[in-house]
Computed example of a mutant assay.
Amino acid sequence: MNANVNTGAQYKLPLLGKVITLAGGDAFERIIPFTQAYEGGESDDADDPGGWTRYGWTLATFLTLAPSLADFDGDHDVDLEDFHQLSVTRSVPLYRAVFFDKYALGKIGGRTAAVTFDASVNTGPGRGARFLQQAFNDLPLSVREFAPVLSLTADGALGPKTLTAVANVCARPGVDAELARKALKHRLAYYDSIKDAPVTKNGVVTYPFRKFHGGLTNRVMDLASFLERVFQ
């Protein structure tokens, strides 16, 4: 546990305006209050390409979960009834299993794990991994030479090669924080790149990301501040 984190203390996210309760523990336990604050409760915004969402889980993604994770009503499958029974508390172990433990994020630096997790929840694991790989490649050669490879293919696959390289450089003083900052910059660049991307739905072309761009950008800026508070 980070001794500088006052577990149970209240923290107001500057741009979102929500007050969250800080937690100690591993990177997942520290970042999950932030992620849940931004994912919110239930949403069915017609402009959101993700569709119906509860506690950050789209219906489409939720229905792919294993019964061992999300069969809340005990009928041996995962269906709409289970989705209705999803709660903020029940979402926590799902987040850990699907977005944190599955990709062994506990093996890399805490800040880097936190930003990769939150990006994976918000943009998908492939993009979260790509931001991390791009950030690694941006590090000075004098830092990357401590890893088994000098560069990573930004293919969005968070496998042993990427994890080992990132874990090696994160062990160097100050690199975890630097890598996290660089990953956030790539995430911001991605949001900028899709701002004017057209989406066709029922034959109608719209630009939904223009509506959400400000909120997505605020999330990254709030995350940068949050990291400084909980990963000192």
Rank of each mutant, 00 (worst) to 15 (best):
N122Q: 14
A189Y: 11
V88P: 00
K102N: 01
A104E: 05
L59N: 04
N4I: 07
G109S: 08
D26P: 10
C170I: 00
T206L: 11
G110M: 06
F226K: 12
R181Y: 05
S87D: 07
D44F: 13
L65S: 06
R229C: 11
G74T: 04
R54M: 07
D77V: 13
T200N: 15
F62C: 06
A189N: 14
I31K: 04
T89Y: 05
F99Q: 00
G203I: 13
F62M: 07
D192I: 03
T116K: 03
T200V: 15
D155N: 13
V115E: 04
E145N: 08
G126M: 04
G156V: 02
L163Y: 01
I31W: 03
V19W: 03
H186N: 12
A23W: 08
F62T: 04
N202I: 06
S142L: 12
A147D: 08
D75V: 10
A177Q: 15
F117N: 01
Q10Y: 03
G156N: 03
F99R: 00
L63S: 04
W52F: 15
T7Q: 11
D196P: 08
L15P: 00
F146K: 09
T35H: 11
V78R: 06
L69H: 11
S91W: 02
G8N: 11
L188S: 13
G203K: 14
V143P: 07
T164F: 02
A70L: 04
G25L: 06
A104F: 02
P67S: 12
S87V: 02
L216Y: 15
A66V: 02
T116G: 01
Q133T: 07
P125W: 02
T64A: 05
A189P: 12
V19H: 07
T153Q: 10
H213D: 08
T162Y: 00
A104M: 01
L22H: 12
G215E: 12
V5L: 09
R30L: 06
L188R: 14
E178C: 09
L86R: 05
V149L: 03
A23T: 13
A66F: 04
F28A: 07
S87E: 02
T116V: 13
D222M: 12
T162L: 00
R187M: 14
A183L: 14
G8L: 05
Y38Q: 07
P208F: 12
H186I: 02
Y55L: 07
M221C: 05
V169H: 04
L227R: 09
A171M: 11
P140V: 13
F99G: 00
A224F: 10
A37D: 14
F72K: 07
N4D: 12
V169E: 01
G74I: 05
N4G: 13
R130V: 05
A165T: 01
D48W: 10
V204H: 12
Y191E: 12
D45P: 05
F117E: 02
K185I: 13
G159W: 01
T112F: 01
L59V: 09
T7W: 00
C170P: 07
D138N: 09
R172E: 13
S120D: 03
E228S: 13
V166I: 12
Y207Q: 11
M221G: 01
R144K: 14
T7F: 01
L223C: 08
P125F: 03
D82Y: 04
V19M: 06
L152W: 00
A113R: 02
L16G: 13
A165P: 05
A70Q: 05
S225A: 14
A27R: 08
Y190H: 15
G128A: 10
Y11F: 15
